[in-house]
Amino acid sequence: MKRYGGLIAFGLAIGFGILAVVLAQKWLAARSTQAQVVLNATVPLTKVVVAASDMQIGTPLTKANLVLADWPQGSEPRGAFNDISAVEGRVAVTKLTAGAPVLAAELAAPGSGAGMVALITTGMRAMAVRVDEVTGVGGFVLPNTFVDIIGVDETRGDKKIAKTILKRIKVLAIAQETFTEEGQAKIVRTVTLELEPKQTEELALQTHQGDIHLVLRNPLEEEPKVEEPKTVAKKAAPVRRVVYRPKPSPHAVEIIRGSKPAETVQFKNANSEEKL
């Protein structure tokens, strides 16, 4: 009996250990289910429209690439939608990630069309310019970056003049792409820029006068506002009315005393008794 005592004790220890593990798993599973039930009972949920798959810029939203997901009520992101029909047909102006809520700020205005047309801000124009590896800053001019445009004037004989003609211009697309992986250089032949109507005329004229170069700038750097000099209107001095008064003419009176010769007396005017 003593010979098998150690083996029996070892077997009992293993059996009790397995039993303890099984009981612990059952207890944890019961606690997890209970916590889930309490959570669902205490936190009200609502539906939010999210992207069903990754979408590139310019992708039209349809029922096929959207889905409704549960979201804690009262914690919905600002600009989120609760109905797929509210966003169906609109176009993404930023890259959408699968599972992320679709926000109003990430979509073009309703009825703005698809593709590049939807990316153009109201009142602006899209213009494509030809570039090479040098003028395109080594391929690091990517969509949604900002550039300054330097024009080289070659119309003045042998002397060339370089001047910044446009500042803080947004890049809409490179070649035919509106999105590339962040930080990835891409050598392209055309860059599409978002310009004001007047700026498109300046850039078109510059492309005929000489070369253009794109200068990549920090998107957080704002162009300083040039304050126009304030002009203070001077208060006009009151106008004095000048009334012309003619100088009084002398008034002569002839006095006759008896047989004496007539005497003439001069007065300042006809109404004055002061003699001259």
Rank of each mutant, 00 (worst) to 15 (best):
A52V: 05
L119K: 12
A262L: 09
A51V: 02
N65M: 12
V137I: 10
V131D: 01
A236V: 04
D132Q: 00
V152P: 00
V48E: 09
M55I: 04
V191M: 01
K167W: 02
V141F: 04
T264H: 02
R125M: 05
A29K: 06
A104R: 05
I8K: 10
V43P: 00
L142I: 14
A236K: 12
R240W: 08
K63L: 14
V38A: 12
G111K: 11
P60H: 11
I84F: 09
R3P: 08
L107R: 03
G139M: 02
E181S: 12
T190N: 13
L45R: 15
L107K: 02
A30H: 08
A41F: 06
M116T: 12
I255P: 02
L61D: 03
A262W: 04
G138H: 01
R241N: 13
V188L: 04
P110G: 05
V117C: 13
K159P: 05
L172A: 00
R245Y: 13
K167R: 15
V226C: 10
D54A: 14
A162W: 06
V253G: 07
V21M: 10
T135P: 14
G123L: 08
N144S: 11
S75G: 03
E196K: 15
L19H: 05
K63M: 11
N269E: 13
F179L: 14
V243H: 05
G79P: 00
T178M: 07
A9H: 02
E76V: 10
L45K: 15
K95H: 13
T122G: 12
A24F: 01
S259V: 08
R245F: 12
K63F: 14
E106L: 09
S112Q: 07
E194W: 07
H251A: 15
T135C: 05
I18R: 02
L172F: 02
S259W: 14
T122I: 15
V50W: 01
V131C: 00
L107W: 08
R217T: 01
A175C: 06
A52L: 13
